[in-house]
């Protein structure tokens, strides 16, 4: 069950439904170490949901997310042909097809049935047998990573900053390293100070979030995530809630991070950032990836008409 290529994050067949609202309709992507992947798309296209599925702030309806070859989400049976073939649903359908004796080979029938079961969502855990369940369990237990542990390795920066309102800036940054990484208070504070100095906010260590400007808050939020030494950073429209004059300072910090080789997934409307810093740009619309390419090709030679239309409006 290991993936051949060592992607840092691997997303497979991701679907997300909010009731009857189908936000993501089958997204697969791989993010390698060192990449800066910029995700763009119109509002409501599902790009933020996609990002939030990566660290399971939203639980995908179907699909799997892998972090460093470890399974973050539950097992999605539809992604594993061997699981489907073990199911009672499959076996009864298979027997019925065989009885018809249409002259198709077993392999052909299997392929057709697998596709049919996938498309119509026919597997129901309650109705399936023990063998099916134990296989699902086995796949999961052999591959999973605890979601809280996974989140320690995935830093996240929010549109609304979400600094802890009840804690000082210093405590905001040191809380997680002290409680989760078991650093000593002193060690964590030293690290926090170094990080704060880098973004030029060392003098704000004792301040509270409500005393800071939006740009300062967002830079602190980035530092708070960095203090956990994550392997990848997710940015969910980090500059969308900022006054225009403060956008620059936040983007500057992000650029530095990218330069240092941090793996980043950035959902943004900042096309300049995408072009300048991104190593790959993904265009999501109507819940699917419409196009992905290097920034140059993406902006100068868009292939799909939908992207051309989108770019003509935002550039």
């Amino acid at each position: 069950m290991t993936t051949e290529k060592k992607a840092l994050i691997k997303v497979d067949g991701l679907y997300k439904y909010f009731g009857s609202n189908h936000v993501l309709k089958g997204i697969s992507a791989e993010i390698d170490a060192g990449e800066v992947v910029v995700v763009i798309g119109p509002s409501g296209s599902g790009k933020s949901t996609f990002l939030r599925c990566l660290n399971l702030l939203e639980e995908p309806t179907y699909g799997e997310v892998w972090l460093e070859n470890k399974l973050v989400t539950p097992v999605d049976p539809y992604l594993h042909p061997d699981v489907i073939e073990l199911s009672k649903t499959f076996q009864s359908l298979f027997a019925a097809e065989k009885a018809k004796n249409t002259g198709e080979t077993d392999e052909e029938i299997k392929a057709a049935l697998t596709a049919k079961i996938k498309a119509e969502d026919l597997l129901n855990e309650k109705h399936e047998g023990k063998a099916y369940k134990s296989l699902m369990k086995k796949i999961y237990s052999e591959n999973y990573i605890n979601v809280n542990l996974a989140r320690q390795k995935i830093g996240m920066v929010f549109q609304q900053f979400n600094l802890f309102a009840n804690l000082s800036i210093m405590d905001n940054i040191t809380l997680a390293p002290v409680k989760l990484l078991k650093l000593s208070k002193q060690e964590a504070e030293e690290r926090a100070k170094t990080l704060l100095e880098r973004i030029g906010l060392a003098d704000k260590a004792g301040a509270y979030p409500s005393q800071l400007s939006g740009g300062q808050k967002q830079r602190i939020a980035i530092v708070r995530a960095l203090a956990m030494n994550p392997d990848v950073m997710l940015f969910d429209e980090p500059t969308s809630a900022l006054d225009p004059e403060m956008v620059g300072e936040v983007l500057e910090v992000m650029k530095e991070l990218a330069k240092e080789g941090m793996t980043m997934v950035v959902v943004t409307h900042e096309m300049g950032f995408a072009r300048e810093v991104g190593t790959r740009v993904i265009f999501i619309d109507e819940g699917v990836i419409q196009e992905e390419n290097t920034p140059e090709a993406f902006f100068t030679a868009p292939k799909s008409p939908r992207l051309r239309d989108f770019l003509s409006k935002v550039l």
Partner: peptide
């Protein structure tokens, strides 16, 4: 957002409630 920020750092449900 406070809850989500806590969870995104790797705190479990109880830790997030207690600390934040």
């Amino acid at each position: 957002g406070q809850f989500e920020a806590g969870r995104s750092l790797g705190f479990n449900y109880i830790q997030t409630m207690v600390y934040i």
